[in-house]
Amino acid sequence: MNDHSILRVVSKIMIPFILLFALYVQFHGEFGPGGGFQAGVIFASAFILYGLIFGIENARKVLPANATRILLALGVILYAGVGVAGIFLGGNYLDYNVLAATATGGQHLGIFLVEFGVGTTVATTMVTIFFVFAGQDF
């Protein structure tokens, strides 16, 4: 799609705002609608838009295949790791109360980390699936 100059210009302007919006949804999910699942999908859609307009090879330069594979696993590990950290600090698995000095502070921290793990996994999953599908050439 290299000859669609309007698409190229508009998407170049839009992509930073999509990423910014995704981060807003990710970190504002405790106060308004949003959270890791939605933020991950929006974050992925920015990369997918880039891949659609500028080609998969260029998008792969921004986000190499190895990086997505590693991040994919890291999200799940972060989530499970928060649970294990709860055990080491004297609580139950996935008990956030013990993560910080106060119970609500611990809950804040736990939910923040868990949502971040979910967001990472969802975003990289969507990016991976799209790139794998689009990378087919028959």
Binding site: G29, E30, F31, G32, P33, G34, G35, Y96, A103, T104, G105, Q107, H108, G110, I111, V114, E115
Partner: peptide, 15 residues
């Protein structure tokens, strides 16, 4: 009071 965040959906989801 238990979780301390306003969005009930997020607190049920994550906690």
């Amino acid at each position: 009071t238990e979780i301390g965040i306003p969005n009930i959906v997020t607190s049920v989801l994550a906690s």
